[in-house]
């Protein structure tokens, strides 16, 4: 294979996952938390695809597609929750919205 070894892709994925995890743990806006989760999911996808290339087996790519579909579903639900919170005049701050009550 031309170019970098698979290990370099895995390092990039690890860095991305760390960045995403930091975002989820530190930011307070639920929108940014959702975006950071997307970064983490994409880091996992990058590892799956890197290993699929390494093994010469397409199963990893199929899994990555399934992850993409789940991520799309998660965004739909997450954004629905955020819009519902905004409509009920709940402050959009993950530290304050801690009670799960209708």
């Amino acid at each position: 294979m031309d170019g970098p070894d698979i290990g370099w892709y895995l390092i990039v994925a690890a860095l991305l996952f760390g960045i995403g995890a930091l975002g989820v743990m530190m930011r307070r806006s639920p929108l940014i938390v959702l975006l950071s989760t997307e970064i983490m999911l994409n880091a996992a996808n990058l590892t799956l695809i890197a290993f699929a290339r390494q093994q010469g087996d397409l199963d990893g790519q199929i899994f990555a597609l399934a992850v993409m579909a789940v991520a799309a579903a998660e965004v739909a639900i997450g954004l629905g929750l955020i819009v519902a919170m905004a409509r009920r005049r709940i402050v959009l701050d993950v530290d304050q919205a801690s009670a799960l009550r209708g």
């Binding site: 530190m26 930011r27 307070r28 929108l31 940014i32 954004l79 819009v83 701050d93």
Partner: peptide
């Protein structure tokens, strides 16, 4: 959604 929320989407940078 960001456009719909407008200014309400801004939360303090970090919490706790």
């Amino acid at each position: 959604v960001v456009a719909y929320l407008g200014g309400r989407a801004d939360a303090p940078w970090a919490g706790g």
